[in-house]
Design a protein around this nucleic acid. Structure first.
Lengths: 204, 204
DNA sequence: CACTTTACAGACAGACCTGTCTGTTCTATT
DNA sequence: AATAGAACAGACAGGTCTGTCTGTAAAGTG
């Protein structure tokens, strides 16, 4: 019951270590020792460390994608859902000792030849961007869209706030960047909503 | 004229390589080879690679601090200066092949025991935060401050936008995150200014 | 000129890394 | 029970890394 599968054990262990200390700071030997498996077993499932990294990011992406879809289909207004995302980020950071975004952290250390990893990062970031764009569309609404409002701009702004919050919370080991981003996102949403009500064409 | 100093050559070369490929991906041997110096010379000036990294970040911080002070004392409104910062970021990214923030990139790969490096990163980020807070204060103005406006909140929001922009431009190798952050910063500034004029107390 | 500082060249130690290989043992299905 | 696939243990090769060490050459200063 404690040992599900060699491959899964490796993936879970590597994921935990990569996230805690960074991809380049964790070696195969440590992974297999902590996963209680043999090196030959490792290379039976993963042809290289780089592929293991890709598998880890892919797994993490799929899990997060499920969470995002659940949020989209769940209850609450779009603005509330955005706010909830920042609350979740605080919890995530508190539980991981401020170790930021696995994708950004990995992207910062790999060589430019690791195209597979680079693609994983880009795909994940694009998915988050699309997520916020979808919520932004719900906020701005169809009417305002036709009148010149740009929900994708609001979505992108929230995406950048989201990224900056987790990056700087990691760098400073403090929570205030998340709160600052949260407030700013709320303000941008409020402005977008009131612009949709009052002025038909935004000057921005 | 081409060889200023062994120490300076090492520092410049290491800085360039660290920035281009990341701290953990560049070794001492490559640095001394490209700096055309000997290993003994290197260790005469820097007791360890970690200290070299600290010296690099410190040098880069001092240079950027000079630029920020020049901007603060230079001509233009505060809002224009903030906008100019995002324009400068685009230029920076274009010239460095989208290799983001040296401090965040380094922070993502070092061990938790590297307290010196961690402090350099935190100090630098705090300086940028203070820079945007100062500009935000100029935007919101003293009157609005007394009436309940919070310039530090605006400054922090711009700081987070700034960080998210450079992070995601690096991850995606695209420029749109900078533009998104730029627009959002402009909008937040506009909202803060109109709130200072019209409504005495912000609801945010 | 004598002397000190600075820089050069590069071998070397010791550790760590990824990835390969040999061979054994467990486990499940037929 | 027999057989096949999966997992185990760990030595090994070949390379890279940081940091130390020995010794030599150049350059500035009294």
């Amino acid at each position: 019951m404690k040992k599900p599968n060699a491959k899964d054990r490796i993936l879970e262990t590597a994921g935990k270590l990569f996230h805690q200390r960074g991809y380049s700071e964790v070696g195969i030997n440590e992974i297999i020792a902590k996963a209680e498996t043999a090196k030959a077993t490792f290379y039976q499932h993963f042809p290289s460390k780089e592929r293991l990294c890709e598998a880890w990011l892919e797994m993490a992406h799929e899990r997060s994608e499920i969470r995002r879809q659940a949020i989209l289909k769940g209850p609450g207004t779009a603005a509330e859902k955005i706010d909830q995302n920042f609350a979740n980020m605080e919890e995530f950071l508190a539980n991981s000792d401020f170790r930021g975004c696995p994708y950004s952290n990995t992207s910062a250390v790999i060589a430019s030849g690791c195209t597979g990893i680079i693609k994983q990062v880009a795909d994940h970031k694009q998915a988050i961007r699309d997520f916020f764009r979808e919520l932004a569309t719900q906020i701005v609404g169809e009417r305002a869209m036709n009148e010149g409002q740009c929900p994708s701009r609001l979505g992108d702004a929230i995406f950048v706030l989201y990224s900056g919050a987790i990056t700087e919370a990691q760098n400073l080991r403090e929570m205030w960047p998340v709160e600052a981003a949260r407030c700013a996102a709320g303000e941008l949403c409020a402005t977008a909503m009131s612009a949709g009500e009052k002025s038909p064409v935004s000057t921005l």
